[in-house]
Amino acid sequence: MTTAPAGVWLITPGHTPTRFASAHTAGADVALVDLEDSVPPAAKPAARTTARAFFTRPDTPASCALGIRINAPTTREAIQDLAALADYPVPPAVVLIPKVEAPRDLGVVAAALDVPGRRPLLYGLIETPHAVQNLSEIVRSDHLSGLLFGTADYAGSIGSTRAWEPMLYARSALVTHAAAAGIPVIDSPYFDLDDQDGLHAESVRVRDLGFRGKSCVHPRQVATVADVFRPTPEQIAHARAVVAAAEDAAGGIVRVGHQMIGPPMVQDARDLLARTRTDETAAGATQ
């Protein structure tokens, strides 16, 4: 299955065109223009029109895939979003669908946007208890390319805070189901814009849990998240050394540096190298 790049996702309100340039050049792997929660209801019609320009700017790096978050597919706003998207001169490579609770939500959007030779990558935003309960069905949809987690709406729907402990069950469920389906899962934004330490700590925790990336709501968060999710040259070199040593040993347990390396660690190294190649390829293919 073709997937959009993982890593750093940046969400920018669709009614603020003055922020489009910084969104494109902030260094994100995926830049989304938003028509949903960050846009006031009165500004949504204008945002649909303004967002067209998000996809026609010449300054977008080839490594940055461009996408859009529409409104929840069961709303009138979403119908208007999909009608507007059909007329965009440059279509989005990625479409993020909020409030996904069943495969039918993905099917509605796919039916409206898929045309011969052009199929946007659909990501489902999981942010309700029903969605978590239905993950096994959602991830089996042929239209799904990946998942995102929305802590704000999920916490509100279960009456909890967005702290680590109350969100851990849902995060673990998303990682498990996404891994079983072979698709990436991206974490929710961290909403305290001045707490870079907290952003870094949460990014490390979700990466270690199995998330492939994290979304941001401001360009100043991009570098911190990128430091966590993008493999360093040293990590890539180590992975290559592990794979090479394992191949020389015909799959047996080997020593690389100070570590004893067995089959699970070799597979981790292969996965890291494969993700790096996939993300590079996907970044170019979505342009």
Results as ranks from 00 to 15, higher is better:
Pro5Gly: 10
Ala6Gly: 07
Thr12Arg: 07
Pro13Glu: 10
Gly14Asn: 02
Thr16Phe: 13
Thr18Met: 10
Thr25Ser: 06
Ala26Ile: 10
Gly27Thr: 11
Gly27Gln: 03
Val30Ile: 11
Leu35Pro: 02
Leu35Ala: 03
Asp37Met: 05
Val39Ile: 09
Pro40Val: 06
Pro40Cys: 11
Pro41Tyr: 15
Lys44Asp: 08
Pro45Arg: 13
Ala47Val: 08
Arg48Asp: 07
Ala51Leu: 09
Ala53Asp: 08
Phe55Arg: 04
Phe55Ala: 06
Asp59Tyr: 12
Thr60Met: 03
Pro61Gly: 06
Ser63Thr: 15
Ser63Trp: 05
Ser63Val: 12
Ala65Pro: 09
Ile68His: 05
Ile68Gln: 01
Ile70Cys: 07
Thr74Val: 12
Thr75Leu: 11
Arg76Val: 15
Glu77Lys: 07
Glu77Gln: 14
Ala83Thr: 15
Leu85Lys: 05
Asp87Glu: 15
Pro89Phe: 05
Pro92Glu: 05
Val94Ile: 08
Val95Asp: 04
Leu96Ile: 07
Glu101Met: 04
Pro103Ile: 03
Pro103Ala: 03
Leu106Gly: 04
Gly107Pro: 00
Val108Cys: 04
Val109Leu: 11
Ala111Arg: 13
Ala111Glu: 14
Ala111Gln: 14
Ala112Lys: 11
Leu113Trp: 08
Leu113Arg: 04
Pro116Lys: 07
Arg118Lys: 11
Arg119Trp: 01
Gly124Met: 02
Gly124Cys: 04
Gly124Tyr: 02
Ala131Gln: 00
Val132Asn: 00
Gln133His: 13
Gln133Leu: 15
Leu135Pro: 00
Ile138Phe: 00
Ser141Val: 06
Asp142Ala: 08
Asp142Leu: 05
Asp142Arg: 11
Leu144Ala: 03
Leu144Tyr: 01
Leu148Met: 14
Leu148Tyr: 07
Gly150Met: 01
Tyr154Gln: 02
Ser157His: 09
Ile158Trp: 05
Ser160Gln: 10
Arg162Ala: 10
Ala163Val: 12
Ala163Trp: 14
Trp164Ile: 12
Glu165His: 10
Leu168Thr: 11
Leu168Gln: 13
Leu168Arg: 14
Tyr169Ile: 01
Ala170Gln: 00
Ala173Tyr: 00
Ala173Met: 07
Val175Ile: 08
His177Asn: 02
His177Glu: 05
Ala178Phe: 00
Ile183Lys: 03
Ile183Gly: 01
Ser188Phe: 01
Ser188Ala: 13
Pro189Glu: 01
Gln196Asp: 13
His200Glu: 12
His200Val: 12
Glu202Ile: 10
Ser203Glu: 09
Val204Asn: 08
Val204Trp: 05
Arg205Tyr: 10
Leu209Met: 08
Ser215Ile: 02
Val225Leu: 05
Phe229Ala: 01
Pro231Asp: 07
Glu234Trp: 10
Gln235Ile: 08
His238Ala: 09
Ala239Tyr: 01
Ala239Trp: 00
Ala245Gln: 06
Ala245Gly: 08
Asp248Glu: 14
Val254Phe: 12
Val254Asn: 06
His258Phe: 11
Gln259Glu: 15
Met260Pro: 14
Met260Phe: 14
Gly262Ser: 14
Met265Leu: 15
Gln267Thr: 12
Asp268Val: 03
Leu272Phe: 04
Leu272Trp: 05
Ala274Ile: 11
Arg277Asn: 15
Thr281Gly: 07
Ala285Ser: 14
